[in-house]
Design a protein around this nucleic acid. Structure first.
Length: 466
RNA sequence: GGCCCCUUCAUCUAGCGGUCCAGGAUGCAAGGUUUUCAUCCUUGUCACAGGGGUUCGAGUCCCCUAGGGGUCACCA
């Protein structure tokens, strides 16, 4: 049985690094037919927010991850933690410390001035006298005074920390509320965690938590510390590297499976395979195969993956996704051809919406460079001649009809295809590039094609006259 | 600064002592397909951080140096 968890602190939106950690835990639990749990780490009442929890759940929902049972809120479990604090106090494994925050700060400054590592000096560890009046004490745990704290990390191997690197850290604040490293150990143990996969910024917390596990007689889980995702240039991931918020990826037109595929390959691999369906991730994922070194965020690869998944999406789904970008195609009679064409050419749903609108809507303006390049010489006359041919032809429906028309036109006029192709392209979508002309004409129809040609011709005449 | 961790192409990575004059993917470049652009296909470009060991043999094991990251709260 494998039990894993994702344990965010609700201080903001869900970050892609957090999503990757969640994914790793999710995959490992599900792969083994185990359980994946969600725990909200909200012991610091001044910092957490209900909106943040909602945002995390929303992101989970978007990527299609679910968790087992109810989400556990640490703020609901204070009584439980208090019980354990009392127990450790009774057993002499923890003690009251009457040092005030001010005294602690002063000590820290002194130590820093002496270039020492700031740390608590254990002055109340064996205190038996009369406590100073008017000081609400914190509770500190007795960390071992000598020896090493050693544990096996599933990714980094054996980690050894000297005992004197670990303070008698605080497990209960002076207001009685418990602190992170204490509650994490209790909850992980009580919730039955077998495998803890988390960011390697927690590496130094692990020895502290091990002290709690041992003081309370709990069984240790396996630990896996996953290296961070770095931004471009190897620096800390920031907003400049794209979106940090998972939901921003939805807003930018990414497919959740593309994001997941991208994230799973950041630090983890299975031979040379690049494309992983959820089924394949579930079949192959093993935290032991996660790299020990940090990886960089690579937006180009995400984009490539997204394009791949768009190409392989059904038109029904794409039509629904496009609605988030203001494009409603469900009842459009040219829906299939539009989607077939554009799913091959777009890297994001957002881009797809924009490009489809470009075809569906009469151009409001023209690209200057395109005009310059396409509308020189007798381009206007050619366009007008083509327009006449359109007007006098009746059986125009399919792309092939328009294609034949264009071919005939080029032959009749004895011109190269570019002579009509480029101006027509500008007339239809306002710029060079874009999909097949016959396709576009077929989609918008004869009347609209004529309208657009007229509009461009007028525009060119106006601007060249002035 | 102390401690801990990390180091293969620009980037993600394969490689778990010989099958590696280092493979795949993204990117980039060139060519092909295409009426344009994009897609797609083909080819090419590009790396074992440096130095010492160990070994018949090292990208793979050990040490040192350099560089990067993390962490040192009554935050999580």
């Amino acid at each position: 049985m494998v039990v894993t968890r994702f344990a965010p602190s609700p201080t903001g939106f869900l970050h892609i690094g957090g999503l990757r950690t969640a994914l790793f835990n999710y995959l490992w639990a599900r792969r083994n037919g185990g359980q994946f749990k969600l725990r909200i780490e909200d012991t610091d009442q001044s910092r957490n927010s209900a909106e943040a929890t909602k945002a995390i759940l929303e992101a989970f929902d978007w990527v299609g991850m679910d968790y087992d049972g109810e989400a556990v809120y640490q703020s609901d479990r204070f009584d439980l933690y208090k019980k354990y604090i009392a127990q450790l106090l009774d057993e002499g494994k923890a003690y009251y410390c009457y040092m005030t925050k001010e005294e602690l700060d002063a000590l820290r400054e002194e130590q820093l001035a002496r270039k020492e590592r700031p740390r608590y000096d254990r002055r109340y560890r064996d205190f038996t006298g009369t406590p100073p009046a008017g000081v609400k004490p914190v509770v500190r745990i007795k960390a071992p005074l000598e020896g090493d704290i050693v544990f096996e990390d599933g990714i980094k191997g054996t980690i050894t920390i000297k005992a004197d690197e670990v303070d008698d850290f605080i497990i209960a604040r002076s207001d009685g509320t418990p602190t992170y490293n204490f509650v994490v150990a209790i909850d992980d143990a009580l919730m039955g965690m077998t495998d803890v996969i988390r960011g390697d910024d927690h590496l130094y917390n692990t020895p502290k938590q091990i002290i709690v596990y041992e003081a309370l007689g709990f069984k240790l889980p396996r630990f896996y510390h996953v290296p961070m995702i770095l931004g471009e240039g190897g620096k800390k991931l920031s907003k400049r590297d794209g979106a940090a918020d998972v939901m921003d990826y939805k807003r930018m037109g990414y497919l959740p499976e593309a994001l997941l595929n991208f994230l799973v390959r950041l630090g983890w691999s299975h031979g040379d395979q690049e494309i992983f369906s959820m089924e394949e991730m579930l079949e192959y994922f093993d935290p032991c195969d996660i790299n020990a070194s940090a990886s960089q965020y690579n937006p180009d690869k995400l984009l490539w993956l997204n394009a791949h998944y768009i190409k392989n999406s059904s038109n029904d789904r794409l039509a629904k996704l496009l609605e988030d970008f203001g494009l409603y195609l469900l009842n459009h009679d040219k829906r299939e051809i539009l989607l077939d064409i554009f799913k091959e050419r777009c890297k994001t749903i957002k881009e797809m919406a924009e490009q489809i609108k470009e075809v569906l809507e009469t151009p409001k303006s023209y690209d200057e460079k395109a005009i310059k390049k396409a509308m020189k010489g007798n381009a206007v006359e050619i366009l007008e001649a083509f327009m006449k041919k359109l007007e006098t032809t009746d059986t125009l429906h399919l792309p092939t009809d328009y294609h034949t028309l264009l071919e005939d036109f080029v032959k009749e006029q004895e011109i190269g295809f570019g002579k009509i192709g480029m101006p027509l392209r500008v007339a239809l979508i306002g710029r060079l590039g874009g999909p097949d002309l016959s396709d576009v004409m077929s989609i918008i129809g004869k009347e609209e094609t004529i309208t657009r040609i007229q509009k461009l011709c007028e525009h060119v005449k106006m601007t060249s006259a002035s």
